[in-house]
Computed example of a mutant assay.
Amino acid sequence: MENNPTYLFVVAAALIDENRNILVQKRPPGKPMAGLWEFPGGKVESGETPEKALVRELKEELGLAIKTDALMPVAFASEALGEKHLLLLLYTCHDWTGEAQNLESSDMKWVPLPELQHLDMPPADIPLVAQLMTVL
Score class of each variant (00 low, 15 high):
residue 41 G to A: 11
residue 94 H to W: 05
residue 79 E to V: 15
residue 83 E to K: 15
residue 105 S to C: 10
residue 107 D to Q: 12
residue 113 L to N: 01
residue 51 E to D: 03
residue 20 R to M: 06
residue 49 T to L: 06
residue 40 P to G: 06
residue 19 N to D: 04
residue 55 V to C: 03
residue 88 L to T: 07
residue 110 W to C: 05
residue 118 H to V: 09
residue 104 E to A: 12
residue 82 G to Q: 11
residue 20 R to S: 13
residue 73 P to V: 07
residue 86 L to R: 15
residue 61 E to G: 03
residue 26 K to T: 02
residue 111 V to G: 12
residue 82 G to P: 10
residue 43 K to R: 14
residue 57 E to F: 07
residue 31 K to W: 08
residue 50 P to R: 14
residue 118 H to C: 09
residue 33 M to Y: 10
residue 103 L to G: 07
residue 77 A to K: 10
residue 39 F to T: 11
residue 99 E to N: 06
residue 88 L to H: 14
residue 37 W to H: 08
residue 107 D to W: 09
residue 106 S to N: 00
residue 40 P to E: 08
residue 70 A to F: 06
residue 107 D to Y: 10
residue 100 A to P: 12
residue 108 M to K: 08
residue 108 M to G: 09
residue 84 K to P: 05
residue 108 M to V: 01
residue 82 G to I: 02
residue 114 P to W: 04
residue 100 A to E: 01
residue 120 D to Y: 04
residue 121 M to S: 01
residue 102 N to R: 06
residue 112 P to F: 09
residue 122 P to M: 09
residue 118 H to G: 04
residue 122 P to F: 05
residue 103 L to C: 10
residue 59 K to M: 00
residue 64 L to Y: 02
residue 79 E to T: 14
residue 26 K to F: 02
residue 100 A to T: 07
residue 65 A to E: 08
residue 96 W to R: 02
residue 81 L to T: 13
residue 79 E to Q: 15
residue 77 A to M: 07
residue 16 I to T: 02
residue 113 L to K: 15
residue 96 W to L: 02
residue 32 P to F: 04
residue 100 A to Y: 05
residue 99 E to H: 09
residue 28 P to Q: 03
residue 26 K to M: 14
residue 37 W to C: 10
residue 105 S to P: 05
residue 44 V to D: 07
residue 91 Y to E: 08
residue 74 V to F: 15
residue 38 E to I: 15
residue 115 E to K: 14
residue 25 Q to V: 12
residue 43 K to T: 15
residue 89 L to Q: 14
residue 58 L to T: 01
residue 52 K to V: 13
residue 58 L to E: 02
residue 32 P to W: 10
residue 117 Q to W: 05
residue 24 V to W: 03
residue 86 L to A: 08
residue 116 L to C: 12
residue 68 T to C: 04
residue 87 L to R: 12
residue 61 E to T: 06
residue 122 P to H: 09
residue 64 L to M: 05
residue 98 G to R: 07
residue 99 E to M: 08
residue 112 P to K: 14
residue 34 A to H: 09
residue 47 G to H: 12
residue 77 A to R: 12
residue 89 L to K: 07
residue 17 D to A: 07
residue 45 E to F: 15
residue 78 S to A: 11
residue 49 T to Q: 03
